[in-house]
């Protein structure tokens, strides 16, 4: 009980500190980083205190310290799983799926026939539930990471395609007229005007796709995988009631997901620095 009250007290104090900091130093970069960090630590302390104070069973919810200890003791295994699921499954599938989507978007944009024929089919495929297609793709491409990459390709393809198609239409009549007065060829217009103009749209799709890629790669492992991988580990650890390991994998997935998203957002900032949504943040 003491632990729970202590945690609550810490939470109140930390929140007051945060509010005060946010008011006084909101323009200081260091403080801007410190505030969410303090908030995160507060949550962990609260979690630890309540779980220990109320004697919650680790099967229901292990305290963060136990998860931390599990992470520390199984680093090589976590790395193997990370390598298998994130680097091989999710990342390769993401690159292939997004690359294909951009290429198809350019083709769709050029041909009204594809636009009418392909987009509805893509829409249909995107509506298929992942738990339905994952087992089929595992059958087709085997247990290893190739089938996971295939699931990721299917999942990321459509959101990126739709955003890119919209982006390629995002030029205004004036800009197209200018290209016409200079007698620009189709490819010149594409490279010098329409692709750059499409970038803010494309990055919207790419950011959504990071999350989808992670989900796809992990969930696809539930339907068959070699004896490694984050999804495989989660499903077997649940069976053994090894919840700290499940949480450890979740922590790795969350970190990897945030890092992945952050990386794409960082690239976006570099590429679309000119867009009104990016200009304000220097």
């Amino acid at each position: 009980m003491i632990g729970a009250w202590g945690a609550l007290g810490f939470w109140v104090l930390a929140t007051l500190a945060n509010v005060w900091l946010a008011k006084r130093f909101s323009h200081n970069r260091l403080v801007q980083l410190f505030i969410p960090a303090l908030f995160g630590v507060t949550l962990l302390v609260l979690w630890e205190g309540i779980v220990r104070g109320l004697n919650v069973s680790p099967v229901i919810l292990p305290p963060p310290s136990m998860i931390g200890a599990r992470i520390a003791s199984s680093l090589p295994m976590l790395w193997t799983d990370f390598n298998q699921t994130i680097l091989k499954g999710a990342l390769s599938g993401y690159l292939m799926g997004c690359g294909a989507a951009v290429a198809v978007a350019v083709a769709v944009d050029r041909s009204p026939f594809l636009q009418r024929g392909l987009l509805p089919v893509g829409n249909f495929v995107a509506a298929l539930p992942i738990v339905g297609i994952a087992p089929i793709l595992v059958m087709w491409f085997g247990f290893d990471w190739q089938s996971k990459a295939a699931v990721v390709v299917v999942m990321v393809f459509f959101p990126v395609l739709v955003n890119m198609v919209a982006g390629l239409k995002a030029t205004d009549a004036l800009q197209r007229d200018q290209m016409a007065t200079w007698s620009a060829s189709y490819w010149q217009g594409l490279v010098k005007l329409r692709l750059p103009a499409a970038m803010p749209f494309l990055f919207n799709g790419l950011k959504i796709a990071t999350t989808l890629a992670l989900i796809g790669a992990i969930v696809a492992e539930f339907f068959g995988s070699p004896t490694r991988g984050m999804g495989f580990r989660i499903s077997t650890a649940v069976g053994q009631l090894d919840l700290p390991l499940v949480w450890a994998e979740i922590a790795v997935a969350a970190l990897a997901g945030s890092a992945f998203y952050g990386l794409v957002a960082l690239i976006e900032k570099g590429v679309t620095f000119w867009h009104p949504s990016q200009r304000g943040r220097a």
């Binding site: 004036l174 007229d177 200018q178 620009a184």
Partner: peptide, 27 residues
């Protein structure tokens, strides 16, 4: 032709010099 439209219509991802040389690149 050189055509000056009612609105400037410069490309925001190109610098001023980059915009001015765009037709030159195309040609």
């Amino acid at each position: 032709y050189g055509y000056v439209f009612q609105a400037a219509g410069l490309y925001p991802w190109r610098t001023i010099a980059g915009n001015v040389q765009l037709p030159l690149e195309i040609m």
